[in-house]
Design a protein around this nucleic acid. Sequence first.
DNA 1: AGCTTGACCGACC
DNA 2: TGGTCGGCCAAGC
Length: 110
Amino acid sequence: MTEPGVVPAADLGPPGFVRRVLELVESIPRGRVMTYGDIAEYLEEGGPRQVGAVMSRHGAGVPWWRVVNASGTLPPQLRGEAARHYAEERTPYDLTRERVNLHAARWDGG
DNA sequence: AGCTTGACCGACC
DNA sequence: TGGTCGGCCAAGC
């Protein structure tokens, strides 16, 4: 059951897409990541850009740093805070290039 | 109906 | 390794 106010009233695309994305993101284990494209593919719905739109608008309440683009990076404003999380949960991370090591950290969704 | 805008992606220099 | 380009999918004007 969704509590009032937790799930945004506005939805994107097919009904329930936002919730499906957010639930999947919450299921990503500590220290692992998925890419926007991985998520769209796993859900068999929408595309990377739609997933990005969901994270941009509604990602604040979930472990958003576990979702990165296909290069292992996030927008510049988010990199600092994301790096803190990566250190704390031991996510394979290249400090120099400020990007997750996808080869080691990518999670296939189970 | 056409054009613009996005937390994107892969191919190709 | 890094930049450009075209494609992608949906929403908004």
